[in-house]
Computed example of a mutant assay.
Amino acid sequence: MTVNVLFAATENRWAEYEAPLRDAISAAGINAHITTDIAPDQVDYIVYAPNSKLQDFAPYTRAKAVLNLWAGVEAIVGNPTLHLPLCRMVDPALTQGMVEWVTGHILRLHLGMDAHIGAVPGTWTPQAPPLAFDTRISVLGLGTLGTACALALSALGFDVAGWSRSQKQIEGITCLSGAEGLDAALARADYCVLLLPKTPKTENTINARTLALMPKGARILNPGRGPLIDDAALRAALDAGHIDHATLDVFRVEPLPPDDPYWVHPQVTVTPHIASETRAAYSAKTVAENIRRGEAGDPFLHLVDRDAGY
Rank of each mutant, 00 (worst) to 15 (best):
D159T: 09
N222A: 09
R225V: 07
A185S: 09
D260T: 11
A189P: 06
E171H: 11
M214S: 11
A212L: 10
D244Y: 05
G181F: 03
Y262Q: 11
P266T: 08
E254F: 03
T174V: 12
S154F: 03
G162L: 07
R188Y: 01
A185C: 04
I229S: 05
G172D: 13
A233E: 07
S164P: 06
A212H: 05
Y262G: 07
L182R: 09
I206C: 02
N222G: 09
K168S: 10
L234M: 11
A208R: 14
I206V: 15
I173H: 05
A161F: 03
D244Q: 14
A161P: 09
F158S: 11
L153R: 13
D259Q: 13
G157T: 05
S154N: 15
L248C: 07
S177K: 04
L196F: 02
R225W: 08
A184S: 10
P223E: 04
A185K: 07
Q167W: 01
F158A: 02
D244N: 11
D159K: 12
T202A: 02
S154Y: 00
L221P: 02
A184G: 10
A240Q: 14
D249H: 02
L156G: 04
I243P: 04
E254P: 00
E254S: 05
L234T: 06
V193L: 11
D159N: 13
N204P: 00
L194F: 13
E171W: 05
L213P: 04
A189G: 13
L186A: 02
A218H: 00
L196W: 07
P223C: 09
Q167P: 02
M214W: 03
W163L: 05
R252K: 12
N207D: 14
L256Y: 13
A237K: 00
G224Y: 04
K201C: 00
L194C: 09
Y191V: 09
R225E: 07
S166I: 09
S177R: 01
E203G: 06
